[in-house]
Design a protein around this nucleic acid. Structure first.
Lengths: 330, 330
DNA sequence: TTGAAAGCGCTAACAC
DNA sequence: GTGTTAGCGCTTTCAA
């Protein structure tokens, strides 16, 4: 059994209130007493009980972090940024995968709220979750990494997906492409909608008619990119360029292109989104839209922390700018 | 403020013990009462406080999970397996990165123990951490995913690194290679030691003298593989094959080889370890040692869960077998 | 500078 | 079936 402050108090011959004070750096404890208490506590292997403390303080030192899919290399980077910042500030983070599933998303948020996390950082796909969070709002400070309708239920932190997609597609247009396809991610996710919008904007800005055959959706994984690209290549008039809603889709697409005996970028150019580490591998050299992933995690924590410490009013929304990185697939 | 069972009790005109019973499915509550309570609880948006429950039950429903580096694609896979299993059993998981840093490792374990996690799943690098866990053993059931000395401080779950490395190197030998280098990971980690041992065993089994110039260590990341391979290629007698302690190192090595104008596998063959998803990409096609990552996470949870539910004596150690996957880099 | 005591939200005896 | 009560480990008044 873990020793408690009572055990220490007994051994020290003081009240347990004094032990509490001594251990939590409270003033008004005689130095001599404090030293003795600290020494004995160490000897006994005392380790404060964060659960008990959380109960009485009505504030845990935990943060809930929900991502759609931790095996997508984007999210580990964000997770690192978040965790580093959180740990430095004395917080621990719960990590959960929603699997892009709305029901699971709701369930996870509920569980995290039961755990009474002090803060919540979530990549949301469902508007229902926004409601859930809104109802719990007074207790749990939330940062949402998506551009959702929010009505101040939470701070919004996100990258400008529309701009990013526009940059990608305009780059392809500048390279002389007109037949540009779009391999989307999960159709019903905010990021996908925004990236799709940017794609359409770019076409429109340059007077290129959108071709509905050229816009298809999958999930956000390799296999999906491969499958969609294969379909695209079977089209009577196949595209000469592809904008993919994320790098995994782009990578899958490239595989399919090569399997068809075509070259990238000569026959089909490809631009992805997210600029995962992999994209810069010599073998890959994928052109992509880059955004600061580690930074985003860090900022997300700082945003919740600011509210937790009650420093000033919470930001309403923070927007990060993506940039185009041209490599050899376009 | 979140409503408590007292708030519900008041509104229902019953004692709060009854509410507790009704809500936690206890028998001996009149159906009618129970229904009324549940209905009101729902109306009020009641959400049980896991912190309070954890305190009184002396058991949280949380699991601590410490990995060396979540941005290494091996660990997200394991994390998924762990989380899926944990969530299904009603547990939530804290994720922490040790960054392969022994001090940080100790600090994280301490924090996790403060949080009174019911179970601990850790990739350990330091023996000191084993001591820390041993001292806390009576309270926190631990599964360690490394082959550490343990003396029953915890259950050991790991893959047979030695065997895997031996398979990799013997495969290279069968392909006719004699000058086989080893790009190791962090020198002072268990996985690295074991994989290195397998490398030496294979050489020895086939009467090949080990060449100390051919064995070098980095960390477990791409850049490191690149740097070491570059050194290796500058050697007067350069190796014709390389065994890398993980796939990221292997990928970095391949980049370096290509940059030198050499071909893989014709000039230098490469085999990695871990078989990350990436390895099977058409552009990559890395030969590697494969092991069940998602499964490992799942098993890790099952091992702690078994102890938590007190079902039989804990396993002492569980060993998973890796397999060689030959692709086009060897 | 220290002690006594209340109470955070909940579960589980023990009464009735 | 339901209410009363103690207590999980801790922080924080209020007194002394």
């Amino acid at each position: 059994m873990n020793p408690t402050i009572k055990d220490i108090a007994e051994k020290c011959g003081v009240s347990y209130a004094t032990v509490s004070r001594a251990l939590s750096g409270h003033p008004y404890v005689k130095d001599e007493t404090r030293e003795r208490i600290i020494k004995i506590a160490r000897q006994m292997g005392y380790r404060p009980n964060a659960v008990a403390r959380g109960l009485v303080m009505r504030k845990t030192t935990t943060i809930g972090f929900m991502v759609p899919d931790i095996t997508n290399p984007v999210f580990p980077e964000v997770a690192r940024g978040l965790e580093d910042a959180a740990l430095a500030a004395g917080y621990t983070v719960f990590l959960c995968n929603s699997n892009w599933d709305k029901d699971r998303e709701l369930r996870i948020i509920d569980i995290l709220l039961q755990q009474r996390v002090s803060g919540l950082v979530v990549f949301l796909c469902s508007e229902k979750s926004v409601d859930l969070i809104r109802r719990a709002k007074m207790d749990t400070k939330t940062v949402c990494i998506s551009n959702m309708s929010h009505k101040s239920a939470m701070t919004l932190l996100y990258i400008d997906n529309e701009l990013g997609a526009r940059q990608a597609v305009e780059h392809l247009i500048e390279r002389g492409h007109r037949a540009i396809a779009c391999i989307g991610g999960l159709e019903d996710t905010a990021a996908n909608r925004e990236r799709l919008k940017g794609y359409h904007q770019a076409l429109q800005n340059h007077g290129i008619a959108a071709c509905s055959d050229f816009v298809r959706f999958g999930d956000y994984r390799l296999e999906s990119g491969h499958a969609i690209m294969t379909e695209l290549l079977r089209l009577p008039a196949r595209p000469t360029a592809v904008f993919a809603a994320n790098d995994l889709l782009a990578l899958g697409a490239i595989s399919a292109i090569k399997e068809h005996g075509l070259r990238v970028p000569e026959d089909v150019a490809v631009v992805g989104f997210d600029d995962i580490q992999l994209a810069s591998l010599p073998e890959i050299q994928l052109s992509s839209i880059s955004w600061p992933k580690y930074e985003l995690g860090k900022i997300a924590f700082e945003l919740v922390a600011r509210c937790l410490e009650g420093e000033g009013p919470p930001e309403d929304r923070v927007l990060l700018q993506p940039t185009l990185v041209v490599r050899s697939t376009s």
